[in-house]
């Protein structure tokens, strides 16, 4: 569906995007992750045809962005980092304008507009001037604008930035829904968002791809050993003594008392060994009930830090 080949973008001496290669298949929801200035927005601007690459090609549905810009642009709905809104128009007028410039002026435009406004929940503000809307509503109008013309590809640059937690959840769910019908690339530096919404994560740093996989695979591949936290109704010393004797455990560390008469313990096991049953058996034999046991997968934050700070970040 989207093919990015050897794309490089230089601004003078500064290389913003460095020989980027990736493909996004139809119906995929891909997350773009990277620290500030990693080249996420630049890459998105290149795919959408807002700026052109210094080198390399981008094709969407087989159409090259340079040779057939119109065909490509028709297929893409773009929500840039700052929603591009004419603030002196009402929501309805603005969407009307977008219908016209996207040449989506079909007969059932009215129903289509109603549908989009319903989807992003802006129906009740449709007659208000955009300049008087709150940040969250502006963001939604921006999203509505991207949906006009029913494009097969949606490119969303930090779609939830500046929203309150409730709105973030709403927009995230909306993106999940949209992912059923559209191919989506979204960028974010809110990591849980990416793991919640995306099937695949592309981590870029300094204009280069440093990792590309599913969130689960990334955490599995990078987590060398499995980690558990336990809350045990026992004295600290006794609990640790019992745990040290369990086969397969590499490392035990007390985390202090968080609940009266219990102790929290952090356990690291050897790779590929499930130590949960042995731990249960050992502790119950010693008469120390386990109140809580949680496995600690490497969170996306940790992966992110790991791959973006490593000297040789090549993972895939």
């Amino acid at each position: 569906m989207i093919k990015v080949e050897n794309v490089t973008k230089r601004f003078g001496q500064h290389v913003a995007v460095d020989n980027l290669n990736f493909t996004v298949n139809e119906g995929e929801v891909v997350g773009f992750l990277g620290p500030n200035g990693a080249g996420k927005s630049t890459t998105m601007n290149i795919i959408t045809g807002y700026i052109s690459a210094t080198e390399g090609t981008v094709t969407v549905d087989g159409y090259d962005i340079l040779d057939n810009p119109e065909e490509v642009k028709k297929r893409i709905g773009y929500l840039p980092e700052f929603p591009p809104l004419y603030i002196d128009m009402t929501v309805k007028e603005f969407l009307n304008f977008v219908f016209e410039i996207k040449k989506a002026n079909t007969k059932n435009k009215k129903q289509e507009m109603e549908r989009i406004m319903e989807l992003v929940r802006i129906t009740d503000v449709q007659n208000r001037l955009i300049k008087n809307l709150s940040k969250g509503y502006k963001q939604r109008v921006g999203l509505a604008q991207a949906l006009v013309g029913n494009p097969s590809v949606l490119i969303l640059d930090e779609p939830t930035v500046g929203l309150d937690p409730k709105q973030i959840i709403e927009i995230r769910n909306l993106i999940k829904d949209l992912g059923r019908k559209h191919t989506i690339i979204l960028s974010s530096h809110i990591l849980p968002e990416v793991s919640a919404v995306c099937e695949r994560v592309i981590i870029i740093n300094k204009g280069k791809i440093v990792a590309s996989d599913t969130p689960e695979n990334l955490s599995r591949r990078l987590g060398e050993s499995s980690k558990l936290t336990l809350r045990i109704a026992a004295e600290e010393k006794q609990a640790i003594k019992v745990l040290r004797d369990v086969a397969g455990i590499k490392y035990v560390e007390a985390q202090g008392v968080k609940e009266p008469d219990t102790v929290d313990v952090w356990v690291e096991a050897e790779k590929d060994i499930d130590v949960r049953k042995p731990i249960f058996n050992a502790l119950s034999r010693a008469g120390y009930p386990i109140l809580q046991m949680k496995s600690m997968d490497l969170t996306l934050e940790e992966i992110f830090l790991q791959v973006t700070t490593q000297e040789n970040g090549e993972v895939s």
């Binding site: 642009k73 773009y78 929603p83 809104l85 004419y86 410039i101 040449k103």
Partner: peptide, 14 residues
């Protein structure tokens, strides 16, 4: 200033 150039230049308009 309003960044609407992004909207215009990424639309199918010439």
């Amino acid at each position: 200033r309003q960044r609407t150039d992004q909207l215009l230049y990424t639309s199918p308009l010439s």
